[in-house]
Design a protein around this nucleic acid. Structure first.
Lengths: 136, 136
DNA sequence: ATAGGTGCAAAGTCTTTGCGCTTAA
DNA sequence: TTAAGCGCAAAGACTTTGCACCTAT
């Protein structure tokens, strides 16, 4: 894989932000620097970068596809109000995975845990009667 | 929601099979009984039925969308060779969910765990040098 | 020089939706 | 009778891909 300005930009966007962006969000961010970049290029690079493991493609169990610069084991919580995605640490996962593997005679190669709910901020906003920050 | 022959047929297909079918598979199965049924009807009904909780829509963490007649808490393992989806029991999930909620100040409303790997049968086929059963 | 990357636009896949007809209650 | 559901076909959302031009090595 050769270097390219666009690919480098795309990777840096995903690595720098803690926001687990969608392809569209990466595209919008990348356009600030490369106004003529195409959505096709963004998808092509996100896929290539996830194939080599430079980033992770995460499919929320509730549908949406996002990209994550953190490649070490961890999981995600999606707030159904503001749609933000938060990281969750789950150190006992390795043991859990092993137990599942053993009990089911299944060789686990990948594991994703997806939680959905309401984040602290949004819950507080509701309880205090403030409009939710994001209309989506 | 009114009764309809097609909806009843669709629900029964999902309830009866342990295969976690895709919308397309439900459609093909339903056509055996209702040759003129449309894919739109299948999607409409699968969505409605999952909204009322008669079945569950499961989005694999690796992309594909499937439907599940089991609505009690359990999880899924997807074999990357034969693409079959197996159920996994995880009784300690409630405790895990609570811990995650508490530690992150996050009110968990849904939780999905998706595992990917190789099932016993496929692994055996490989180790014995037999062609894999499904070319997909 | 040339393999690999880009932008663009077209095409693909999966899913939803508008509409006129049909069916359940 | 009439609200709900169906089949059909068109449209939408998201993603991939073919191609002619450009860029890194």
């Amino acid at each position: 894989m050769n270097y390219s300005q666009q690919r480098s930009c795309i990777l840096n966007i995903v690595l720098s932000k803690p926001v687990h962006p969608t392809a569209e969000q990466v595209y919008n961010e990348a356009r600030k620097k490369y106004p003529r970049i195409s959505l096709g290029t963004v998808y092509r690079n996100l896929n290539q970068l996830s194939e080599i493991g430079a980033l992770k493609k995460i499919c929320s169990p509730y549908g949406s596809v996002r990209f994550d610069g953190r490649t070490d084991p961890h999981f995600h919580m999606e707030c159904t109000v503001c749609r933000e995605v938060f990281d969750v640490e789950l150190p006992e996962l390795a043991a859990l995975e092993k137990r599942i593997s053993d009990e089911n005679n299944f060789t686990v190669t990948r594991c994703e845990i997806g939680l959905q709910g309401v984040c602290e901020k949004c819950r507080k906003n509701f309880s205090e009667g403030i409009d939710k920050p994001d209309g989506k």
